[in-house]
């Protein structure tokens, strides 16, 4: 299943900016395993639905160490590894916003 999602916040800047849209392929990925460098969408208790880049694949693909690009990004440094069953999609394409929306502050 493919889903179109809207990016909110600057944690993955400059790869993904506030207002960008991403196309996420839903789980499972029989032909497309999640690898380091992939950008995934997952549900994180207390945070909602997040988008982050996979830094490392852990426990033989059962969990992922995820990171934003900013020092202040909320990611595995805050909430630990993301379990595979939390993952709802993998980003396969993005539609970039024009680079004029500079009004996002410390999300």
């Amino acid at each position: 299943m493919l889903r179109l999602l809207k990016v909110r916040g600057a944690s993955l800047w400059p790869d993904y900016r506030e207002g960008d849209y991403v196309l996420a392929a839903g789980m499972p990925f029989p032909a497309r395993k999640i690898r380091a460098g992939d950008v995934i969408v997952f549900r994180q208790p207390g945070y909602g639905t997040l988008i982050k880049r996979v830094r490392r694949v852990l426990a033989n693909g059962q969990a992922y160490d995820v990171r934003g690009t900013q020092i202040a990004s909320s990611d595995s440094r805050n909430f630990g590894p993301v379990a595979q069953d939390q993952v709802t999609g993998k980003v396969i394409a993005s539609i970039r916003a024009k680079q004029t929306s500079q009004n996002s502050q410390g999300h």
């Binding site: 909602g48 900013q70 990004s73």
Partner: peptide
């Protein structure tokens, strides 16, 4: 469309 958060540490200061 559903939003996905690229969150930083604290909501808007």
């Amino acid at each position: 469309f559903e939003s996905v958060d690229a969150h930083c540490d604290i909501p808007c200061g």
